[in-house]
């Protein structure tokens, strides 16, 4: 259980927010057994990458490739993606 991976959350960024942050992915560490809301996770990320803060109200969050509400609890091992308004097609 000392494996760092078991206590971390992978965060993926795309398009405009990826460029603002200057990274396409990062890893956030959780304390053992800790679960945080997706919204709080965004706040933690914005503390490290303040450039993304203005976009956060528009961001939809996906956890493990499904859209979730901000109160969704994120756990270690989850894959979290920041989805700015989409423009495919």
């Amino acid at each position: 259980m000392g494996d760092k991976k078991l206590q971390s959350v992978q965060v993926l960024l795309f398009s405009v927010i990826r460029e603002q942050a200057g990274i396409d992915s990062t890893t956030l560490q959780l304390d053992p057994g800790e679960a945080v809301s997706a919204g709080l996770l965004l706040e933690r990320l914005a503390a490290t990458y303040p450039a993304i803060r203005p976009m956060l109200p528009l961001v939809r969050i996906a956890v493990n490739r499904e859209y979730v509400p901000r109160e969704h609890m994120v756990q270690a091992g989850d894959e979290v993606a920041l989805i700015t308004p989409v423009s495919g097609g």
């Binding site: 398009s15 528009l58 989409v86 097609g89």
Partner: peptide, 27 residues
């Protein structure tokens, strides 16, 4: 549905070398 939900984004590249992400559909 694809245009409002699928996580896909487009960036426009203009003739003058400028570019910008297209403002997408809001959630």
């Amino acid at each position: 549905t694809l245009k409002t939900r699928a996580p896909i984004w487009k960036k426009e590249h203009f003739v003058d070398g400028d570019s910008r992400w297209v403002e997408g559909d809001s959630a």
